[in-house]
Amino acid sequence: MTSRHHVTVIVRPGGAAVVTLLALASAISVARGEGDPAKGNAAFVRQCALCHTIARGAPNSYGPNLFGIVGHRAASVAGYKYSRAFAASAQWNWSPDVLGAWISDPAAMIPGSTMDVFQGVADSDRDDIVAYLANQR
């Protein structure tokens, strides 16, 4: 079964962006399905482990530790120094939908964040990675 949600990035005149969930009106849309956590694990190693640890209590790396990310407030991992752009813009909780949108195109969602060197994951990997991350709790 597929759920369809849409994420819109609103850029304020001052440059900071906030993200809201708006149905059917979006700059970045995510058609999210049920993911396979085992496939997500493999995709995570290929595309995410370069920057992120995932085990509980593992130290932050170039990016923050991602254990328990789903449901948590963005930019809230203790001890991690977020980019100015991300800290100013990421005013949300990490729902599966927002997470899927973020990993699909981080540079478009928040230009200037630490993660904007990464082009984003393919649609075919996105739901698996989100499912894998959701299981890490």
Partner: peptide
């Protein structure tokens, strides 16, 4: 390799460089 590239004071530079080269197949 993902871990090795994070190593030491050059980790940030190595990760940023490799981050540009990541693809769905790694």
């Amino acid at each position: 390799w993902a871990r090795r590239l994070q190593s030491g004071p050059g980790g940030s530079t190595m990760v940023r460089t490799m981050g540009r080269l990541l693809m769905p197949d790694g």
